[in-house]
């Protein structure tokens, strides 16, 4: 307790050369994670980064912590084993839209359902990068890629409603162009007890460049996104004069000062309210700006690994520690002289 470790960013930088494409959004995410970790007051050796396969999944090699680069889609399963076996570790799952939502979709929903106390960072660039540019489960319909020359006909996943449907107890969204916000979200995710899911809009400069451009460039971003904060009214727009209200059980975009609307009429974000979280998760369907920030943060839900260890402790408290000899000689035995 006494020794609060103090770290600099370089303490979390491994000796391996980073091999993402120049201009890749992953660099900014890596840097933000490394910076966020310096401020958590947690010992370096207690961090474990676990990834699947894909560009984002090279991440653990670049972190000077414990780490596993696993197989495609399975990071949540390995992470579940790491955390269940040793709850004292801070476990981070690094995944992408292909790794997490396609081949690893099953593990993703189940780790979230169990609510292990782990952090999931999903780099969403809406494309397969490492296999050189096929459409992913988050690609928009119509996207022309090598495997969809006439345009993708797949309906994309919306990660937020999917994950909330799987009972995610924490959901945040951030952008690779906003390092300060990323660090805030990573810190929030670390502090949340339970599975924390952070979706990061990440740009693939080679195969899907500028896919999130409308949410990131100065000219449009204030009108296309809304930064939600707990307890704050939902205001956005360049002039900070637009907002979201609830009318007839539907959200609606309004302009403050028009039709008698005042700031007091706006919906106030309550990140513990699953109704609001789901409303924000479906922003696209309601024609709302894309929300970023903490969409949902459930209050104190039990974590899987705590349950595992408390059951064990309860049995040992009641029966005492197991004794193999006693077990062997328990029940019916016969002795032959």
């Amino acid at each position: 307790m006494s020794e609060q470790p103090t770290y600099k960013k370089k303490d979390f930088v491994s000796d391996q050369e980073v091999r993402w494409c120049p201009g890749c959004g992953d660099y900014a995410i890596l840097s933000s994670v490394q910076l966020a970790l310096t401020k958590l007051g947690r010992k370096k050796e207690e961090f474990v980064f676990v990834s699947g396969i894909g560009c984002s999944s090279r991440f653990p090699y670049y972190m000077n912590t414990y780490g596993l680069h696993t197989i495609h889609g399975r990071a949540p399963a390995l992470a579940s084993g790491i955390k269940t076996q040793n709850p004292d570790l801070s476990v981070w799952i690094i995944t992408g839209d292909g790794d997490g939502l396609s081949i690893g979709g099953n593990h993703l929903i189940h780790v979230v359902r169990r609510n292990l106390d782990v952090n999931i960072l999903l780099f969403n660039n809406e494309i397969y990068g490492l296999t050189k540019g096929q459409y992913s489960p988050t690609s928009n319909q119509g996207l022309v890629t090598k495997s969809t020359p006439q345009g993708s006909i797949d309906r994309p996943f919306q990660p937020a409603p999917l994950l909330l449907g799987a009972r995610s107890s924490f959901y945040a969204r951030t952008l690779d162009t906003d390092p300060k916000h990323m660090q805030q979200m990573f810190t929030r995710s670390y502090n949340h007890k339970g599975t924390s899911f952070v979706e990061i809009f990440q740009n693939c400069v080679i195969f899907n460049d500028k896919i999130h451009e409308q949410f990131t460039n100065r000219a449009s971003r204030d009108d296309t996104t809304i930064r939600v904060e707990h307890g704050q009214p939902m205001i956005f727009g360049k002039e900070k004069n637009k907002g979201i209200i609830l009318k007839d059980v539907k959200p609606e975009v309004v302009t403050i000062g028009e039709n008698g609307v005042t700031e007091a009429d706006l919906l106030v974000h309550d990140e513990t309210n699953p109704f609001i979280a789901n409303l924000l998760a479906h922003a696209n369907d309601f024609g709302l700006p894309v929300p970023y920030g903490v969409l949902y943060c459930a209050k104190d839900e039990a974590c899987y690994e705590e349950g595992v260890h408390s059951q064990i402790n309860a049995v040992i408290d009641k029966k005492g520690k197991g004794d193999m000899k006693k077990l062997l000689f328990s029940g019916e035995t016969i002795t032959v002289d």
């Binding site: 399975r74 399963a77 084993g81 790491i82 955390k83 269940t84």
Partner: peptide
């Protein structure tokens, strides 16, 4: 798959 993968994770943890 998750059966073996959780075990591999637990093995990493000791």
């Amino acid at each position: 798959i998750a059966g073996i993968c959780t075990s591999i994770g637990a093995a990493f943890s000791g």
